[in-house]
Every structure is written in C-alpha cells, then in structure tokens.
C-alpha cells in the first residue's frame, strides 16, 4: 500500500491498516499505536520541510530551498536508521510493527530532531520577519473559513483558514499526547505556510512525547490477513490532509479498494483562489495548496462533457480485459 505515494507512504499504510483492523475487529496495543504516531509525525516533518523548501524556491529563494532540503536529509537519516528505507518505509504490520526501537535508535532520533527543531525555529523567524515573503504571500489565494467549509478542503489548507479539522484529534492516542490542531485565521498563502511550519515544530514535540510514553513491553505478533471477509473504512491524517481508504475483502483477497487522497479534495478550491489575481501569483497559489499530482491521478472517463457511468463489470470488460487480476480503479 506504500507505493501509492512517495511523499506520504506511511499515511497510506496507516489508513489501510486502520481499515483492515476495523474490519477484522483488532485493537492494536498502545505501543504499536505510539510507534505509528512516531512514524506518521516523522513523515509530516519530512513532507512539510520538503514543501516549505519548494515554496521558497517558487518565491525565488534558492538558498532557502537548499537549506530546507539539507535539513530534510536529517529526517531521512532517522527513517533510514529506524526502518532501513529513505522514502518507502514498510514499517507497520497488521496488529504490530516490523521491529522495536532500540535505545540507540531513540538517541539518534532525538539528536537529529533537536538539530532540525533549532533550524526550523530560525526559518520560522525568517518567514515571520521577511518583508518580501510577506509581500509575495499575504492576501494571495485567500479562502475564507466559510468558503473552506463549503469546498470541503482538508489538512493545512483548511486549518490555515481557521477550520478546526484534523483526523488526529479524533484518534484517542493523539488525545492522550495532548494534541491540539494548529490554526491560523486569515486563510491566505502566508497563513498556510505558517501552519505548516508550526506543525513541523508540533510534530517534533509529539515524537518526543510518544517516545517518553512508550511502554517497555515486547511487540505483539504480526496478524494475518488470510481468510478475512469484511467491508470497512479507515483514515489517517496525511501531511496534506485526510486520507481515506475503503476496502472490501472476501476470503483474504481484496475485491475493491478506493482511496480518497487529500489533494483531490484540496485542488477544487484552486479556481476560487485564482480569481482576480495576477499571472505571477499562479505558482504561489498552486504551490501553497501543496499539490501532489500522484495523488490526483484518478481514472475518470469524460465524453462530451459527461462523465461515463458504468458498473464494475462493464469497466473491466472495456478497459481491463479478462486475464488481468482485478486492480480496482477509483471512480
């Protein structure tokens, strides 16, 4: 499930596991949940720093772009130390995780995070004080709270407009860690930038708290998917917003899967944001939504302005062929 996206692989695997565990009525141990929190938050730090660097590049700050990507390498080092992979981690398992954190890994993580935190705090100060940043970002691509709720945007885009929406606040283990969503009121590109930078710092705090609350028990055994029949949904908070999975399985074989990715919800608001702005603002506005185009590639057949409506059987006959296993298209 990780190969859905290269920037937020863990969110997809966590949402998928949430879905399967709900369907099979498994409640993982607290230790496993905390390990997933750590992995998700590290991914958020990574993704937000990647995005802020990209945004700085759009604004013309090549140097800041390099700084952010340099610091991002440290979070990738942490991932490599823990899971063995820089981009795709494959850390979570059904009911468990692949392996436990050792003392060495924890110390390494804390050391690297302390460095990243110090640097991000400095960059946040730059974003707050730099007049050119403000001139380029303030009032650009504004979406009001009302508009954000109507469009159904998710993640940092919604939180930048003051909509208190976050999957994490509904998850018990996050509530125990004292999680509160980061909110900004204005709803322009500047607010979204600040939300992401503040969330980076918040995520570092969350990782530290999760590490301190980690029970000293052994990891439970991996579960098996064999023979499971269910129809269930699961979700997780990806760096870009809510990630939603629907799985229908029969006898341990997945018959139908639908993934609703956050960019798919966010990109709809682009039209309203672009109205009345100049051409030069387009990269900034599009960039501020943090679009992931791998997230947006969905199958939708449009003919003469009408979406083609067909059943699963018809779709398979027309596009898939008979000898290929049913890889389910979304939409």
């Amino acid at each position: 499930m990780q190969r859905v996206c290269g920037i937020c692989p863990t969110s997809h695997s966590t949402a998928f596991l949430d879905c399967v565990e709900r369907g099979m009525k498994i409640d993982p141990a607290k230790k496993v949940k905390l390990l997933r929190v750590i992995e998700l938050e590290l991914e958020r730090i990574n993704s937000h720093m990647l995005w802020t660097g990209h945004m700085a590049n759009i604004l013309g700050y090549k140097m800041l772009f390099m700084f952010f990507w340099k610091e991002r390498e440290h979070t990738l080092d942490v991932f490599e130390k823990i899971t063995g992979g820089r981009i795709h981690h494959n850390f979570s398992k059904l009911r468990s995780a692949r392996f436990d954190l050792t003392k060495d890994m924890e110390n390494f993580m804390l050391r690297k995070l302390a460095r990243v935190e110090k640097k991000v705090k400095g960059y946040l100060k730059t974003f707050r004080s730099d007049s050119i940043m403000k001139a380029r970002l303030r009032g650009v691509g504004t979406i009001t709270k009302d508009g954000a709720e109507r469009m159904g945007v998710v993640g940092p885009v919604a939180r930048g407009s003051g909509v208190n929406i976050d999957v994490r606040k509904h998850i018990p283990v996050y509530r125990e860690l004292g999680f509160e969503p980061v909110l900004e009121k204005v709803g322009d590109s500047y607010a979204r930038t600040l939300v992401r930078l503040r969330e980076t710092l918040q995520s570092i705090e969350l990782v530290r708290e999760a590490l301190s609350e980690m029970p000293k028990t052994r990891l439970p055994k991996w579960g098996s998917f064999a023979g499971a029949t269910f129809e269930s949904t699961g979700r997780s908070e990806a760096p870009r917003g809510e990630d939603f999975h629907f799985i229908k399985a029969e006898n341990g074989i997945i018959k139908r899967a639908k993934i609703r990715t956050p960019t798919f919800s966010n990109i709809i608001s682009l039209e309203g944001m672009l109205k009345g702005r100049e051409i030069g603002d387009i990269p900034v506005i599009l960039g501020s939504l943090d679009p992931c185009f791998a997230c947006m590639e969905r199958v939708m057949v449009v003919k003469d302005g009408k979406a083609e409506d067909m059943s699963e059987e018809e779709f398979r006959r027309k596009y898939v062929g008979n000898n290929i296993p049913s890889v389910c298209p979304t939409h």
Binding site: R3, V4, C5, G6, I7, P9, L50, M66, W69, K70, E73, R86, I87, H88, C292, F293, A294, E297
Partner: peptide
C-alpha cells in the same frame, strides 16, 4: 511517467547540498 513521486524526490535530492 506515472510513478509515485518517490524517485522524483530522490532525483530532486541530487541538486541539494548533500
């Protein structure tokens, strides 16, 4: 050509300081 962005990230990482 229709990947997951993982390789894209590593290719962009080529131009960054490390």
């Amino acid at each position: 050509s229709g990947g997951c962005n993982g390789c894209a990230l590593e290719v962009v990482a080529l131009i960054t300081p490390r």
